[in-house]
Amino acid sequence: MLKKRFKFKKDYSLFFIILFLSGLGLFMMLPLVFLVSTAFKPSEELFIYPPRFFVENPTLQNFKDLFLAMAGDQIPLSRYFFNSLLVSCITVFFTVLLGSLACYPLSKHKFPGKDQIFGLIIVSLMFAPEVVEIPRYLVVSYLGLMDTYSALILPSLAFPIGLFLMKQFMDQVPDEIFEAGRIDGASEWTMMWRLALPLIRPAWATVVILAFTAIWNDAGSSALFTQSEEMKTLPYYLSTVNGQGVARAGANAAATFILTVPTVLIFILFQRQVLSTMAHSGIKS
């Protein structure tokens, strides 16, 4: 009897938790809803003040406007898309690789200067990106990288937030696992690839999503480090559509929508990894 009542009470509170989470969850999805509905708004709805969340008379006019705006250009849209995809994929791959390499010793080894390196990373997080924009330009031009893919890739490889998150996850992995590995004769290299990296899979999935979103949406480095039109990336190009004023607001909304599709795909691909529970180590501490 007592047990039954307890169970009933538990189900009851569970119901409320789920209700609460559903409400909040709907709220969390609003930006996505807004983005999609804005892309399909006819121009008179775009300028209602205050703006509406939902579209009333959905139309494809914005997309037509966007393609009309692009029709006069000499460089095909596919070129911008290719540039963006190439730059984003290479950057994300190396960001994760370098971050993994660096986070393992920073978390699990003791060596002089380790705390200083980590301190520098935290401090560098506190700077506005605008501060380093012009000096970065000077570095890139000094290295002779202007107008190359390297100029778009190299500066964003040292991604401090990524390393910070990966190190934080690595701290959660018990040291005993590595001690066991060492006793079994694994080299540092093996331990890193076979033990450390699989264990922090949620961290690198997170970094993939964050880094991809940041780089894919970044119009700034394309504007700064490249001059020729065929080296520009998609967000830069779409921001030039945006720059053409109020008349292009509809086309701009459609452009933003198109720009978001790849990041949503990456999110769907990797979110399962991010949110999978951290591997249970099987070690009781």
């Binding site: 370098l98 971050g99 390499l101 660096a102 393992y104 010793p105 920073l106 080894h109 003791k110 060596f111 002089p112 380790k114 390196i117 520098l120 990373i121 560098s124 700077f127 501060v131 380093v132 012009i134 000096p135 970065r136 000077l138 570095v139 190299l154 500066p155 964003s156 490889l157 040292a158 401090p160 390393l163 540092e188 290299w189 890193m192």
Partner: peptide
């Protein structure tokens, strides 16, 4: 000793990128 060198080795690539594109630009600013 080996752990220390391997530690430096693993971190170094990241740190070089960090020096060139974040720390040095910060100094310049």
């Amino acid at each position: 000793r080996r752990k220390v060198t391997e530690g430096y080795l693993f971190v170094s690539v990241w740190v070089i990128g960090f020096l060139a594109f974040t720390l040095y630009p910060l100094y310049m600013s």
